[in-house]
């Protein structure tokens, strides 16, 4: 497991579009945006409109916080001070299990894995874990591998 993130060096500033999302993570809920008109889901919530139907109404969908690793990077040379002691760490894009739509659309999210690189592979199932930060208003979702997959692919170089 990578060393802790130094959250004292990171200040998250929720805004009009994202405040409810951060409030939900405090309650250990993982939200994605959901269009009340057509049902399309998306992430991150910075986008204030539905890219499928153009609706400006925005709702939320509470996911189970489970998915599959779609891609990842291993940050060896960190740039954000809060992560200097954490490196090497894995940031992954995760395709959520419960957001598949009839037309084939999927919703992917991203976050920092709790696993070290050798445990990471594209295709592996993972789940969200909530981490307290130095800021009482902010709980940070992180992700950890929670199973195996027959066709997982690992960057082996």
């Amino acid at each position: 497991m990578p060393a802790p993130i130094d959250y004292s060096k990171l200040r998250i500033v929720p805004d009009f579009d994202t405040a409810e999302w951060w409030a939900a993570t405090k309650e250990h809920k993982y939200l994605v945006r959901r269009c009340p008109d057509c049902g399309h889901k998306w992430f991150p919530p910075i986008f204030p409109a539905c890219a499928r139907c153009g609706s400006l109404k925005t709702g939320w969908f509470e996911t189970a916080g489970k998915g599959v690793i779609y891609s990842y990077v291993v940050v060896v040379q960190p740039i954000v001070g809060a992560f200097v002691g954490t490196a090497p760490y894995v940031v992954a894009i995760i395709e959520l299990d419960d957001c598949r739509e009839a037309d084939g659309a999927v919703t992917r999210v991203a976050g920092v894995m709790l696993n070290d690189e050798p445990e990471i592979a594209i295709g592996l199932p993972c789940e969200v874990v909530y981490e307290e930060t130095a800021d009482p208003r902010i709980v940070m979702p992180r992700w950890r591998v929670c199973g195996a997959a027959p066709n997982a692919w690992r960057f082996a170089e």
Partner: peptide, 10 residues
């Protein structure tokens, strides 16, 4: 590295 990072907006 950025000593204290302010993550706002995107």
């Amino acid at each position: 590295p950025i000593p204290v990072a302010v993550a706002e907006g995107d």
